[in-house]
Amino acid sequence: MSLLAADGLVMDFGGLRAVDGVSFEIEPAEVFTIIGPNGAGKTTIFNLVSRIYEPTAGRLIFDGEDITRVPPHEIARRGIARTFQNIELFEHATVLQNLLLGRHAHKRSRFVEELLFLPRVRELELEHREAVERVIDFLDLQPHRDSLVVNLAYGVRKVVEMARALCTRPRLLLLDEPSSGLSVEETEDMAFWIQDIRTILGVTVLMVEHDMSLVSSVSDRVLAVNYGRPIALGTAREVQEHPDVIKAYLGG
């Protein structure tokens, strides 16, 4: 059974139809990439899956459950985490605090307990910390643990954001342009991490990406969209050679 199924997604902004009947199915533990020219509706699809937008029509099924009307803050608890194109970290907090917030979906302490900082809260906090430290080790973020995000380089911030998403312990990780703004070396590192996330942690990845070298090195399947409609689906090579895709990128 597929992990995530999108069925006939439609999204209108006023008179503009940004997504027009997109359907796809993502299998567990695969890396599924959406490509397309600028303004093709990739990020809109992304925002629909992470429930930031209300779809005009269509359904989203995650792990057998209809999540089309689930509020956005419930998504993390169900096992979907995301990153953002332009990095949405909590800039005036430390890396550690950012990652601990990634554990918010697993918060079990109540307000009054926290007010008094009862021993139970302390235990739970330590549990969260252990979970966060595993992610820190996994992504080699130890040197930055106590730095403020404001003071970090762009490439590190990208990794921190991915780490924060991993702290929610997701089953589906949404990466919005993981390579944008990164140097060639950093993009290579990113490719390795995405592979590790899939093979070591067993997390399914849905990503939107422009960099074709990254796309072809990590993706199992690629979906190309243009004008909000799917135009090709297959392996990276198949899609890249598809005549409609070439036409969409080169115009005509």
Binding site: S50, I52, P72, H73, E74, I75, A76, R77, A81, R82, F84, E88, L89, F90, L101, G102, H104, A105, K107, R164, T168
Partner: peptide, 8 residues
């Protein structure tokens, strides 16, 4: 928006 996506 990030807080919301993390489950807040």
């Amino acid at each position: 928006i990030a807080a919301q996506s993390m489950g807040v």
